[in-house]
Amino acid sequence: MFEPPILDQLMGVGALLIGFAGAYRHIKLQEERNEKERQEEQEFASMIIKGYNHAYERGREAERQEIRKNIRRPFKGFTYDNEPPVGLRPEPLALPEPKMHILK
Rank of each mutant, 00 (worst) to 15 (best):
G22D: 04
P90R: 11
I49C: 02
E57N: 08
E35M: 01
A62Q: 09
G19M: 03
L16R: 14
M47S: 15
L29W: 05
L7N: 11
L93Q: 13
E32A: 12
D81E: 15
A15M: 06
I18L: 15
I67V: 14
E97Y: 02
A21C: 09
G51D: 08
K76E: 15
L7F: 05
L17F: 10
K99I: 10
Y56N: 09
E43Y: 05
K76Y: 15
A55Q: 06
N34D: 13
G14V: 04
P90Q: 09
R72G: 00
G14H: 07
I6S: 08
L16H: 04
P85I: 04
R33Q: 13
G14D: 07
M100W: 09
P5Q: 03
I102D: 11
I71P: 00
P98S: 01
R73A: 01
R38P: 00
R60L: 08
P4G: 01
E91A: 07
K104N: 10
G59P: 00
I67G: 00
G77I: 04
F20T: 12
Q39W: 06
Y52W: 08
N34H: 08
R33V: 03
I48F: 05
I67S: 01
D8K: 10
L103H: 07
I27W: 03
P85H: 05
R58E: 15
P90L: 07
P92V: 02
G14K: 07
E63D: 09
D8S: 12
A21S: 14
R38H: 04
Q30T: 06
L16C: 08
K104H: 07
I6H: 01
H26F: 12
A62N: 06
V13T: 12
E66T: 00
H26A: 10
E35P: 00
N34Q: 14
H101M: 10
P84C: 02
N34Y: 06
L88M: 15
K50T: 01
K76W: 11
E63I: 06
L7R: 06
L29M: 09
E32R: 14
E35D: 11
R89H: 08
P90W: 03
R33C: 02
R60N: 04
F75Y: 15
D81T: 11
T79C: 09
H101A: 09
S46M: 10
E66N: 07
R68A: 13
Q65Y: 04
Y52A: 10
Y56I: 03
D8F: 05
M11W: 05
F2I: 14
L95W: 07
K76L: 13
L103I: 14
L88P: 00
F20N: 12
K76D: 09
I102W: 06
H54T: 14
E32P: 00
E31Y: 01
P85Q: 05
H26M: 07
L10H: 03
F2L: 10
A94T: 08
P74S: 06
G87I: 07
I18M: 11
Y80R: 05
R33I: 02
E3M: 10
L103M: 09
G59S: 03
M11F: 07
E97D: 08
E40W: 02
Y52T: 05
E66A: 12
A62I: 13
N70D: 06
H101D: 13
T79K: 14
G77K: 03
L17N: 13
Y52M: 15
R60A: 04
N34M: 11
G51R: 03
E61A: 15
P85A: 07
R58G: 02
K36N: 05
L10V: 11
I6A: 08
A23Q: 06
